[in-house]
Design a protein around this nucleic acid. Structure first.
Lengths: 188, 188
DNA sequence: GTCTATAGCAGGATAGAC
DNA sequence: GTCTATCCTGCTATAGAC
């Protein structure tokens, strides 16, 4: 793997672990086993490197989610599978995490992959919920977009509870709660 | 107001806005209009000051939540009122926010108010849900703790979506979604 | 492409005067 | 209690050699 790619991979990992502000070029260089010269040869600076790394993380998140959301099964089954999919909940969401970083929110280049990815996710979930309603699986009185936002928020907020507790349990509970509520809204 | 209190207030505000790592003693001093001598006279250092400030924020959050959760109305009404209470969703949660700060998670003194407060919140919500079930308001097949975790996660995750979008709308949608799902689980 | 040297600046804290 | 001076470290980046 070439140096440029190692720098990107290391950056993605550190952004996930520590966020943008707390990730120093120095730490990236060490993790990537690359020198200062390499970093500033391949990238204009920290923000440039982080922006490209973040685009990669966003794309990966979309691919992993799409594999479930566009996968096998009925719409309602896919929503439930999205919720219950295995997650390393103590690590949190590599994209949602960036939301706590003021520097990310004030930089268009850094913010864009974050906002676009989460908007895409809610859109896709809302479409699936509408499909489930059209298929007669889910009660028609739910607002698809509101339900989708609640589903996505449960995941994002579950990470918060888990990390606060230092335990995966609150995350699992939150998912269970969402699944139970959704099942209660199933037709039949 | 004395200098010590001004330092605490400024710290609480900055911790909310920027988190722990990104909040410098210098910024606190400026916001509190206090000198370096004052800060290090009243507090052992940044962590000490932040720990006390965080305890204050945690207490305030508990008080505000308890005012609703222990307030007027039936259990189910109070849960719904907790969800729909007005919030500055773009600011996020002053406690949940700390969860993204690695330094907070690795310091017992900083982590404790965060973990305890969110644990208290979920506990209290779970009790209220059990009460609603006992009162025949809510279907008995919901697990109280799971439902409570989902409710708390919806709020915490709603902040994430709102901040990513730079708009309060995703938060409001998530809350609406949770309310609709809960209403669907009402008896009768 | 990668290296080392160097720079300017801010973070977090201590010391000692007042 | 508060002030100023000072310290060391690490961040982010540039310069120029190889």
């Amino acid at each position: 793997m070439d140096t440029r790619q190692r720098l990107l991979d290391a950056t993605r990992e550190l952004l996930w672990q520590r966020g943008y502000a707390a990730t120093s070029p120095n730490a990236i260089m060490k993790a990537a086993r690359a020198g200062q010269g390499s970093l500033y040869h391949h990238f204009a600076g920290k923000e440039d490197l982080a922006a490209e790394a973040l685009r990669g993380s966003a794309e990966q998140l979309r691919e992993e989610a799409a594999a479930i959301l566009d996968g096998e099964g009925s719409p309602a089954e896919r929503i439930e599978r999205y919720l219950t999919r295995e997650r390393d909940s103590l690590r949190g969401c590599r994209i949602g995490r960036m939301t706590a970083d003021a520097d990310v929110l004030t930089s268009d280049r850094l913010r864009q992959p974050v906002s676009e990815t989460l908007a895409w996710l809610v859109d896709r979930l809302a479409g699936l919920i509408a499909d489930a309603q059209a298929a007669g699986e889910l009660r028609a009185d739910l607002d698809p977009r509101a339900t989708a936002s609640c589903v996505a928020s449960t995941v994002q907020g579950g990470y918060v509870l888990a990390r606060a507790a230092g335990s995966t349990e609150p995350f699992d509970q939150a998912i269970t709660g969402a699944v139970q509520l959704l099942r209660g809204a199933m037709v039949g």
